[in-house]
Amino acid sequence: MKLLWTIQWSDLIKALHELYPNWTNEQISRLIISAEKDLQQSSNEKNDFEFLLLFMEDDEGCVGEFLKGVREQLEFDKNEYIEKIKNVLIEYP
């Protein structure tokens, strides 16, 4: 079955910036590279791509590289937040 759900690579980059305004260009670039791996397609082309493929799981129920990257980024954000709180608590005992 051919999927009809396509967007441009620039749309994905814009979407990530809008959804996660605190993520840096570098962090988002890393996610784009992961997405390229999942789709085996280069994001340099102005091509459309089937974004649903980024949300597929493999035959063991594992998510792809893109969602793994998102997961790691969320984990990173959480740890950064915890560190911030820790520092605040240390400063004001």
Partner: peptide, 19 residues
Amino acid sequence: QMKEFARILQYLIKLCSNI
């Protein structure tokens, strides 16, 4: 995690015009 994955997916679905 699932909520965040869904948030990205839903955002991309909205961008998609050929539904």
